[in-house]
Simulated assay, not measured.
Amino acid sequence: MSTIERLRRRSEFLAVTDGRRFHTERMTVQGQLRPVSDETAPAGLRIGFTITKRVGHATERNRIRRRLRAAVSAVAPGAPTTVPADVVLVARRPALSVDFETLKGDLARALSIVTRPQDPNRKPSSRRGGKPRKAGERTASPGLAPGAPLPNPCDGSPDGQ
Score class of each variant (00 low, 15 high):
residue 101 E to Q: 11
residue 106 D to K: 00
residue 59 T to G: 00
residue 59 T to E: 10
residue 99 D to P: 00
residue 66 R to V: 01
residue 36 V to R: 15
residue 16 V to W: 03
residue 123 K to R: 14
residue 87 V to Q: 02
residue 109 R to T: 10
residue 154 C to V: 09
residue 25 E to G: 15
residue 103 L to M: 05
residue 139 T to I: 14
residue 137 E to I: 06
residue 116 R to E: 10
residue 111 L to C: 08
residue 79 A to N: 06
residue 1 M to W: 07
residue 124 P to F: 07
residue 95 A to G: 01
residue 148 A to E: 14
residue 134 K to L: 09
residue 32 Q to I: 14
residue 91 A to M: 08
residue 18 D to Q: 15
residue 25 E to C: 06
residue 131 K to L: 15
residue 158 P to T: 10
residue 36 V to D: 14
residue 82 T to H: 14
residue 22 F to V: 02
residue 55 V to W: 00
residue 125 S to N: 11
residue 31 G to H: 02
residue 122 R to S: 13
residue 131 K to D: 15
residue 77 P to H: 07
residue 57 H to M: 08
residue 16 V to D: 03
residue 18 D to H: 14
residue 94 P to I: 02
residue 93 R to V: 02
residue 43 A to E: 11
residue 122 R to V: 10
residue 46 R to C: 03
residue 27 M to W: 05
residue 78 G to W: 06
residue 36 V to Y: 10
residue 155 D to L: 11
residue 122 R to N: 11
residue 70 A to D: 14
residue 109 R to I: 00
residue 87 V to R: 00
residue 30 Q to A: 14
residue 99 D to M: 04
residue 87 V to D: 00
residue 112 S to M: 12
residue 63 R to N: 07
residue 154 C to Q: 14
residue 4 I to K: 01
residue 91 A to E: 05
residue 102 T to A: 12
residue 148 A to L: 06
residue 9 R to M: 01
residue 49 F to N: 00
residue 77 P to I: 05
residue 59 T to N: 12
residue 135 A to H: 10
residue 62 N to M: 07
residue 103 L to F: 02
residue 127 R to A: 12
residue 90 V to Y: 10
residue 100 F to E: 15
residue 123 K to H: 09
residue 59 T to Y: 07
residue 105 G to N: 15
residue 39 E to W: 07
residue 155 D to G: 04
residue 107 L to W: 03
residue 113 I to E: 11
residue 63 R to C: 03
residue 79 A to H: 07
residue 152 N to D: 12
residue 80 P to L: 00
residue 32 Q to V: 13
residue 125 S to H: 11
residue 53 K to Q: 13
residue 80 P to V: 00
residue 23 H to F: 10
residue 16 V to P: 01
residue 15 A to K: 04
residue 149 P to E: 13
residue 61 R to A: 02
residue 144 L to G: 05
residue 37 S to K: 05
residue 108 A to Y: 01
residue 17 T to P: 01
residue 118 Q to A: 10
residue 147 G to K: 08
residue 93 R to W: 02
residue 144 L to K: 12
residue 89 L to H: 00
residue 110 A to D: 06
residue 96 L to P: 00
residue 161 Q to L: 13
residue 7 L to I: 11
residue 9 R to Q: 11
residue 150 L to M: 13
residue 134 K to R: 15
residue 20 R to F: 04
residue 160 G to C: 07
residue 124 P to Y: 09
residue 74 A to W: 04
residue 106 D to L: 01
residue 111 L to K: 04
residue 20 R to E: 08
residue 111 L to F: 09
residue 124 P to S: 11
residue 84 P to T: 03
residue 25 E to Q: 14
residue 152 N to V: 07
